[in-house]
Design a protein around this nucleic acid. Structure first.
Lengths: 147, 147
DNA sequence: TTCATATAGGACTAATTTAGTCCTTGACTA
DNA sequence: TAGTCAAGGACTAAATTAGTCCTATATGAA
């Protein structure tokens, strides 16, 4: 389990959409706002669309928007769309990498770790992130005001 | 945080040494027993030696052995020697990868995940693994006996 | 004392994965 | 019907991982 840049991009992107619901927002705008390479982001949004997390609209004034409320979308979901599942160690997923499947004492540790991570990611929704962002942004403002 | 093959090898290697304390065991034997490429394992053992987890002895009848009791060595320690620390997302370690350090709402999630993982890995020692191995090996034996 | 058996260490290479780009096609709408 | 957008496939570049290889050095035993 390691967050790829792609996943990072995807999360920021969905966060942006979550903060601008009901509008269709195009790739260029998101890429500029969140500092993500445009063409790469386009690819990521394709995946999110296929997965049903966002819906797309072509043509002018087209773009993307969320299909669900931010509170209904977890970090885990996005993570899964991009990376395909939590994989702490190859051996846990792919038996080819472990000849000791039936009696490996280390194996269960990875499984436990995976379960823990999954729980945490499932329990964080984009509504949570939005409210945190607000608090944090406020903090930054106050800091600026002080100086 | 993703377990590299190298770390996997290291863990199996230390487990083997933990199961054969007081003897010096050489690279060749461990590599054969645990199915790890010999030259690669040699490199790994160098790291473990430098880190003070094993001590080496050159010359005939030389090899490696643990410097401490298995109960005193955690999975985390080995992990750290090989991979240098838990890094769920680059942005958590390296600011270059995140322009949003001061107000990123996703950031704290990774930190929490890292802390959780670390706890779990610290709390598993090689003594734990050895006893698990015993139980598991016994299970395999019973299965074989049945057929 | 010298030979066989080990590790130490540095410099390489091969394979795989990650992080993108580019280009053409197809949908929408003003 | 031209301009604006996404869809999709095929590529490429960069970075990381997973090793190898070769030489030097230490140790113990014949």
């Amino acid at each position: 389990m390691k967050i790829k840049r792609e996943t990072d991009h995807a999360l920021k992107c969905v966060l942006h959409l979550a903060q601008h619901q009901d509008e269709y927002i195009n790739v260029l705008e998101i890429s500029q706002q969140k500092n993500i390479p445009r063409t790469f982001l386009a690819k990521i949004l394709q995946k999110l669309t296929k997965a049903g997390i966002v819906e797309s609209h072509q043509g002018s004034h087209g773009g993307f928007k969320l299909t669900r409320q931010p509170a209904e979308i977890s970090i885990y979901e996005i993570y899964k769309v991009v990376q395909g599942g939590i994989e702490v160690n190859k051996c846990v997923i792919d038996n080819k990498f472990c000849d000791r499947i039936h009696y490996c004492s280390i194996h269960p540790v990875w499984i436990e770790v995976q379960v823990d991570i999954k729980k945490k990611l499932i329990n964080t929704s984009f509504a949570d992130l939005i409210s945190k962002e607000a608090v944090l942004a406020d903090g930054v403002q106050r800091k600026k005001a002080k100086t």
